[in-house]
């Protein structure tokens, strides 16, 4: 299959040029092209028929990983391969490298980007869930020159839906400097190695000096509602010592409550099992990283 007719192709070199290229098009006519690992599927299958493409590949200021005083900023055009091999991103940001290093396959990781992934917000995807679990913020710039910053919880609205407006470009995803003794992790189960998650689980926890859990965020991938928090597990983890019994109970509660569905990949009960078993493994790893 090949794309329907495309009238314009632009390859801006700066954010200002990218926004200018977008503002020259009618609203909804143009789309940004990041890694193309989802957009090109949609364009080839003609689910998307953009009149114009604004290719972000040459916008250097959208690429790169910056750590300043513990705070992390990842440019929207930073690829999975670059996130996966950044040795600085353990501990509090471990969920991001866990997710990035198992997206699809190495060809996809050489091209796909964090920005493309959160803007696409596919119903079963790794990065939106890892970003939600770690409490990332989406930094957007509009053609009007306005900028705004949205928490992942407010940005990720549902499958293929985000709070991004048509005239906005995602510039970066960023995280405040994490509290001491914070750890995060992500894991998924799919039909083949590194496949899209049938279920994916992301967890971020912070412990105080006595080992008590004072911050817990749990996020799931693979439910019909898309990337979402798991408050049923969070409340049980909070205040606990991050011990195995509490973790068990937390993910049993989340599995019991989660709105799982049946499809060709797995039935609803199997998805509950996955939430429990992956949740145990991921939470354990998050606490281990918090203690390290």
């Amino acid at each position: 299959m090949f794309p329907a007719r495309i009238e314009h192709y632009a390859r801006p070199r700066t954010v200002a040029e990218a926004l200018a290229a977008l503002s020259r098009c009618e609203p909804g006519e143009a789309i940004f092209l990041a890694g193309g690992q989802s957009a090109m599927q949609a364009i080839k299958s003609r689910m998307l028929r953009p009149q114009a493409l604004v290719d972000l590949q040459a916008v250097a200021e959208l690429k790169g990983i910056t750590l300043t005083g513990g705070a992390l900023t990842i440019g929207a055009m930073t690829r999975y391969a670059d996130i996966a091999r950044d040795a600085r991103l353990g501990g509090a940001f471990g969920a991001l490298t866990d997710a990035a290093s198992h997206v699809g396959d190495r060809q996809v990781r050489n091209r796909g980007t964090i920005g493309g992934s959160v803007c696409w917000n596919y119903v079963a995807a790794c990065t939106p869930t890892a970003v939600l679990a770690t409490g990332g913020r989406m930094n957007l710039g509009a053609t009007s020159g306005a900028t705004r910053s949205l928490a992942a919880d407010d940005f990720l609205l549902g499958p293929l839906e985000t709070a991004r407006q048509d005239d906005e470009l995602l510039l970066s995803v960023s995280w405040d400097a994490p509290a001491a003794r914070t750890g995060s992790a992500y894991a998924k189960w799919g039909l083949v190695t590194d496949a899209l998650p049938v279920i994916g689980v992301g967890v971020s926890v912070t412990q105080d000096a006595s080992g008590k859990c004072v911050q817990a965020r749990v996020a799931l991938a693979g439910l019909a509602g898309g990337a979402q928090r798991g408050p049923a597990a969070e409340v049980l983890l909070m205040g606990s010592a991050g011990d195995a019994a509490t973790i068990d109970a937390a993910f049993a509660a989340l599995a019991a409550e989660a709105d799982t569905h049946s499809d060709l990949s797995a039935d609803a009960d199997y998805r509950r099992q996955l939430i429990q078993s992956l949740g145990r493994e991921v939470a354990q790893r998050a606490f281990d990283r918090a203690r390290a």
């Binding site: 299959m1 794309p3 192709y9 193309g36 690992q37 090109m40 599927q41 080839k44 299958s45 493409l53 391969a81 396959d105 190495r106 060809q107 996809v108 050489n110 091209r111």
Partner: peptide, 23 residues
């Protein structure tokens, strides 16, 4: 349209990518 088989893999500036997912 899926880009899952890898038969079209080439090197773009030395890195393996799928040429069916690029213009």
């Amino acid at each position: 349209f899926e880009g899952v088989c890898g038969a079209c893999t080439i090197h773009l500036d030395g890195e393996a990518v799928k040429s069916c997912l690029m213009l």
